[in-house]
Simulated assay, not measured.
Amino acid sequence: MQEVLSTQDLAPTSRARAARLVTSEGFQRVVVGLILLNAVTLGLETSDTVMAGFGPVLEFIDGALLLLFTAELALRIFAFRGRFFRDPWGIFDLLVIGISWAPSGGDLAVLRSLRVLRVLRLLSVVPSLRNVVGAMLAALPGMGSIVLLMGLMFYVSGVMATKLFGESVPEKFGSLGDSIFTLFQLMTLEGWVDDIVKPALENHPWALLFFIPFIVISTFVVLNLFLGVIVESIQTLRETRESADAGAAQAATDAAASAAHADSGMLLSELRALRAEVAALRAERG
């Protein structure tokens, strides 16, 4: 019975120590360093020359790093238990490490290339990267409206371009699908003058009246709307966290002031009691 009690007493202490370890700044720096080392080794494995000279060494390092990442993940699960599986970043790390352990031979050889996903664990380890990802996820509803607007604009412009330039430039605007793809290339400004605009201008001198407004709206307006939504989301998230930190600091200040007031009241009560005793003693002597 004594042995069971000692084991039960030891378990929470061990989990607390593990939690303090995995959340410590030094431990996080080591994990970041290992992830960066893994990123370098995975990049070197793409070179045939490097693999010919150091292939076994790189494979050994990759296997050792996978074991270390697995041990780190197991330590976090031991420390936090159920809370680990309620954390989206914990599930993300678990999936990334699980994919790395999947067999990579035969038909599953493509999974070997997915080992590079371990580099994405920087998103869950570095707080600033987590903040950016959180802001982007929070911006998805607003971005969805912009995507809908862009899709509507591409569809309407694609139909117009097909009817206007389909016969003269069939390789670019021969069908609705070709027109939408060409308009997407036009939005990226990749070879838009020589490949798209000039062939259309040969038969339609007024074609710039269609292409220039489309470029202005799609490239300089709609894409900047995406950036605006993301920046606003990051700013809102930052203000929310600053407000939460300020609220916590104010609560701590109020608690300290309340405690000091309580101590002052207690001291005042003791002084009054002492004065009453002194007055009673003087009355007895008198």
Results as ranks from 00 to 15, higher is better:
residue 266 M to E: 15
residue 111 L to S: 02
residue 123 L to N: 04
residue 269 S to P: 00
residue 187 M to H: 14
residue 102 A to Q: 01
residue 155 Y to F: 12
residue 52 A to N: 08
residue 211 F to M: 01
residue 19 A to F: 06
residue 76 R to H: 04
residue 254 D to K: 11
residue 243 S to T: 15
residue 286 G to Q: 09
residue 231 V to T: 13
residue 251 A to Q: 13
residue 252 A to Y: 08
residue 14 S to F: 13
residue 101 W to D: 04
residue 6 S to Q: 11
residue 183 L to G: 01
residue 189 L to I: 09
residue 278 V to M: 12
residue 199 P to I: 05
residue 115 R to V: 04
residue 167 E to W: 06
residue 32 V to D: 04
residue 121 R to H: 01
residue 153 M to S: 09
residue 236 T to D: 11
residue 54 F to I: 07
residue 239 E to V: 14
residue 56 P to T: 05
residue 286 G to F: 11
residue 215 I to T: 14
residue 29 R to I: 14
residue 156 V to L: 10
residue 82 G to S: 07
residue 269 S to H: 10
residue 278 V to Y: 09
residue 276 A to H: 11
residue 139 A to I: 06
residue 270 E to A: 14
residue 202 E to Y: 04
residue 208 L to P: 00
residue 89 W to G: 00
residue 256 A to C: 06
residue 227 L to C: 11
residue 176 L to M: 04
residue 75 L to T: 08
residue 275 R to F: 14
residue 32 V to N: 02
residue 109 A to V: 09
residue 223 L to A: 11
residue 83 R to S: 09
residue 102 A to K: 03
residue 197 V to P: 00
residue 90 G to Y: 01
residue 162 T to N: 09
residue 12 P to E: 00
residue 120 L to Q: 00
residue 14 S to I: 15
residue 34 L to Y: 00
residue 85 F to C: 00
residue 279 A to H: 11
residue 177 G to A: 07
residue 250 Q to I: 13
residue 143 M to I: 15
residue 172 K to H: 05
residue 155 Y to C: 03
residue 42 L to H: 06
residue 207 A to N: 02
residue 83 R to H: 08
residue 190 E to P: 03
residue 269 S to E: 12
residue 39 A to T: 07
residue 103 P to I: 01
residue 198 K to C: 01
residue 198 K to Y: 08
residue 64 A to K: 05
residue 213 P to G: 03
residue 66 L to W: 04
residue 43 G to P: 03
residue 241 R to V: 13
residue 254 D to L: 15
residue 184 F to W: 07
residue 126 V to C: 03
residue 263 D to M: 08
residue 61 I to R: 05
residue 204 H to I: 07
residue 142 G to A: 14
residue 128 S to A: 14
residue 195 D to K: 11
residue 284 E to W: 11
residue 40 V to S: 00
residue 238 R to G: 10
residue 71 A to Q: 05
residue 207 A to L: 03
residue 33 G to A: 08
residue 26 G to A: 09
residue 48 D to I: 08
residue 44 L to D: 01
residue 3 E to N: 08
residue 268 L to V: 10
residue 118 R to S: 13
residue 268 L to E: 12
residue 223 L to E: 11
residue 283 A to F: 10
residue 89 W to N: 00
residue 184 F to N: 04
residue 260 A to H: 06
residue 171 E to W: 03
residue 253 T to V: 15
residue 161 A to C: 01
residue 140 L to Q: 06
residue 232 E to Q: 15
residue 245 D to W: 13
residue 12 P to G: 04
residue 196 I to H: 02
residue 70 T to N: 01
residue 104 S to Q: 10
residue 127 P to R: 00
residue 16 A to C: 07
residue 90 G to S: 02
residue 236 T to S: 15
residue 251 A to I: 11
residue 235 Q to M: 14
residue 195 D to S: 10
residue 91 I to H: 02
residue 245 D to Y: 12
residue 40 V to I: 08
residue 31 V to Q: 06
residue 20 R to K: 12
residue 143 M to P: 06
residue 235 Q to A: 15
residue 93 D to N: 10
residue 103 P to R: 02
residue 20 R to Q: 13
residue 60 F to Q: 13
residue 215 I to M: 12
residue 102 A to F: 10
residue 16 A to Q: 13
residue 268 L to G: 07
residue 139 A to F: 07
residue 277 E to N: 13
residue 259 A to D: 01
residue 105 G to E: 11
residue 216 V to A: 13
residue 137 L to Y: 03
residue 186 L to S: 07
residue 13 T to S: 10
residue 59 E to D: 10
residue 166 G to F: 00
residue 80 F to E: 00
residue 269 S to D: 13
residue 211 F to H: 02
residue 99 I to P: 05
residue 125 V to D: 02
residue 160 M to A: 14
residue 118 R to Q: 14
